[in-house]
Design a protein around this nucleic acid. Structure first.
Length: 470
DNA sequence: TTTTGAGTTGTTCGA
DNA sequence: GTCGAACAACTCAAA
């Protein structure tokens, strides 16, 4: 979804032939259907790209269907010399692309795929003993030491395609209707390459210097880059981020460790792709199969309360409502809400992953699954199972100003700071004065923290005993 | 091949 | 209020 630093597009342009840009909305049932929030973003991103391509004299040709059929039609209509595209790394997508590449070659058409979305291919780094990295820190040490981006791929100067038929993006129904729930998302984001570039520039100017500590603070606006949806949709590539940050470091940026910390977070995204690439079922199966026997509870009512931001834990409810309203949740809060779902409520991480998939504008199969598996304890290099977030102290520590909870849980806005992360601990007269009636205007906690923690630890203990015996 | 040290993001308890 | 240790054992990475 960009024209700058796009390996496939730049390579096509360098052939000096007419270059036609095609976007295929795939309908193959082997592919996971993008969630509603992602489709909302895609709609805006496509329109921005369409306009950027028009400005270069070309046309974004949009087609819908089975990719091989669509490409087959285009081959007949256009008789291209070559077809270039950006690579993907999920199993279903790779299988489709492999088949198409083989078919095109049989037809005598050049077919080339390029890395357009990662710093390095997921197979690029091997441990000394062979095999992929399963622990982040040594992986990061290698990336930090050896990765160096190629020079930026030049933006094409002219594009073609004006005469080629294509669908109108408006006819694809990507934007929600009846109801249109996207108002809150619309106000928050600017999809498209220009929006991505501006977000990066603003972050480098303002947020980066305090990133090391502010990144954990959902109550601080722009403590994080908020680049995730732009990255996910390819409006900016990680190599562009890397170059921009490295340039700052090389020019003597004072908060160098903050800059490296930010690049390490970009590398986490890469690491997720390493895990996904080498484990095709990483998105739905426990990486650590010990967890297969966990006595998960599939309580629909608890799941619904969590989804709706009605758990009675203000930091959790604030996060879930932020997600619902703007299609995004702060990273720190993602961990807190995930911990409550998988540990206190013992609901399978896949249920949480599915909800995030549908509601996040940055929903990414690799990062989303890696995050959920990390929290649940089932992932590679995961949080140990006994590490159970305390939603009260996490709120007090990371939403220290209480601004985050007050923003997203307005029914608590008059509760004093001291109690706003645990309103049930407030004396009755204070609650009354704040206009809060627990169980009516705001829920009682869905489960008592200590009891939920003890139950989760006990389930883990029992599971281990059973497996040791077996 | 063997050994050694280490491992994103926490919590609780007791001194 | 502060601080260090325990919480589990295991897998991974590299010397």
């Amino acid at each position: 979804m960009r024209l700058d630093d796009h390996a496939a597009l730049a390579a096509a342009s360098q052939t000096k032939r007419a270059v036609i840009c095609v976007y295929i909305l795939e309908q193959d049932t082997s592919l996971r259907r993008p969630g509603g929030a992602s489709l909302w973003w895609l709609d805006k991103s496509l329109k921005a790209l369409r306009s950027d391509i028009s400005a270069l004299g070309g046309k974004l040709v949009c087609r819908r269907g089975i990719a091989k059929d669509v490409i087959g039609d285009l081959v007949k209509e256009i008789e291209p010399e070559a077809i270039y595209w950006g690579r993907r790394y999920n199993k279903a997508g790779r299988d489709i692309d492999t088949e198409i590449k083989a078919w095109l070659k049989d037809e005598g058409i050049q077919a080339k795929s390029f890395n357009t979305s990662l710093l390095s291919e997921p197979w690029a780094y091997e441990t000394v003993s062979g095999g992929y990295y399963k622990v982040f820190t040594p992986y990061w040490n290698v990336v930090k030491r050896s990765y160096s981006p190629s020079p930026a791929h030049p933006r094409p100067q002219a594009l073609a395609g004006k005469g080629i038929a294509g669908d109108r993006i408006e006819d694809w129904g990507l934007h929600p209707e009846n109801p249109d729930w996207s108002g809150g998302i619309e106000n928050e984001w600017t999809p498209g390459e220009a929006g991505a570039r501006k977000r990066l520039e603003d972050f480098l100017d303002v947020g980066l210097r305090s990133y090391e500590t502010a990144r954990d603070r959902p109550d601080i606006d722009d403590g994080t880059s908020r680049l995730s949806p732009h990255l996910q949709h390819g409006e900016i590539g990680p190599a562009q981020i890397w170059r921009a940050v490295r340039t700052k470091i090389d020019h003597g940026f004072k908060q160098e460790s903050a800059a490296w910390k930010f690049l390490a977070e970009v590398a986490w995204r890469e690491f997720s792709y390493v895990l996904l690439y080498h484990n095709p079922d990483f998105g739905w199966s426990n990486y650590d199969d010990k967890f297969d026997d966990m006595p998960w509870k599939s309580n629909k009512n608890d799941l619904r309360r969590w989804q709706n931001g009605q758990t009675g834990y203000p930091i959790v409810d604030a996060g879930m409502r932020q997600l619902w309203h703007i299609g995004w949740m702060h990273n720190r809060v993602r961990m807190i809400v995930a911990s409550l779902l998988t540990k206190h409520l013992m609901i399978p991480w896949q249920d949480g992953e599915n909800w995030f998939w549908d509601t996040l504008v940055d929903a990414d199969a690799a990062s989303n699954a890696a995050g959920w598996q990390w929290t649940a304890g089932s992932g590679a290099d995961a949080s140990p199972y006994f590490r159970i977030f305390n939603p009260i102290t996490q709120g007090q520590k990371f939403d220290a100003s209480t601004a985050y909870v007050r923003k997203w849980c307005p029914e608590l806005k008059d509760v004093p700071d001291k109690y706003v992360h645990a309103p049930w601990q407030a004396p009755a007269d204070i609650l009354k004065e704040a206009g809060v009636t627990l169980g009516v205007t705001y829920p009682e906690p869905i489960i008592e923290h200590a009891a939920g923690r003890a139950r989760a630890l006990d389930a883990w203990e029992t599971l281990k005993k059973k497996q040791d015996a077996a």
